[in-house]
Amino acid sequence: MTKLLLVDDDAELSSMLEQILTKEGYQLTLAPDGETGLQRALSGSYDLILLDVMLPGIDGFQLLQRLRQQLRSTPVLMLTARGDDDDRVQGLELGADDYLPKPFNPRELVARVKALLRRTPNTSVRPEPLEFAGFHVNPLQNEVRCDEQTLELTPTEFDILRALVQGKGQVVSKDQLSVAALGRQLAPFDRSLDVHISNIRKKIEHNPERIQTVRGRGYRLLQLA
């Protein structure tokens, strides 16, 4: 059974979300504050973490930061009730895979959860290894090596990079990338994909600009000279 962790101090909301997600066939564990949330998350036995930003004790951003230092492979969906776009971007920069602003339609939450969970090694489109522009993608092990160095990627970053490598230097549109990595179309005003790309670039030691922005169209990989 798929196990989810919900870190939110809003007990009423948590219990209602538990009902909904349980009905969808997930096993939900609750954590009412940051400390508990971090401990449970680090136990590593969850398939997805739902994380609220405003938490007593350590807040959602700090929790995420510490979590990502040790655990990269678990997808994280941020739930935020704060309005600033900066807050949303900040979560993504710290390694969240996607965010959902409160109030949200519960069906949307379920859809996002499903989209993030869809990517398990056995459901990947092409299990055979891919190679382009110095990147070596091994879908079976969820591993990407760049110039013979293993990149520490979050699941979303892995999916974006895999889609780019699959494109073999062709422009991959933002919508394609969004569908491949986040399982949804990009909304207008949505900068999440740009933040993910920027995160990936930061992890590439040499020539991060080989992931090229094609303005208005998308991204592509440049073959190294």
Partner: peptide, 11 residues
């Protein structure tokens, strides 16, 4: 404002 609204929506 958003927190109760979120609860309402789920409820």
């Amino acid at each position: 404002l958003r927190s109760p609204l979120a609860r309402m929506q789920v409820a």
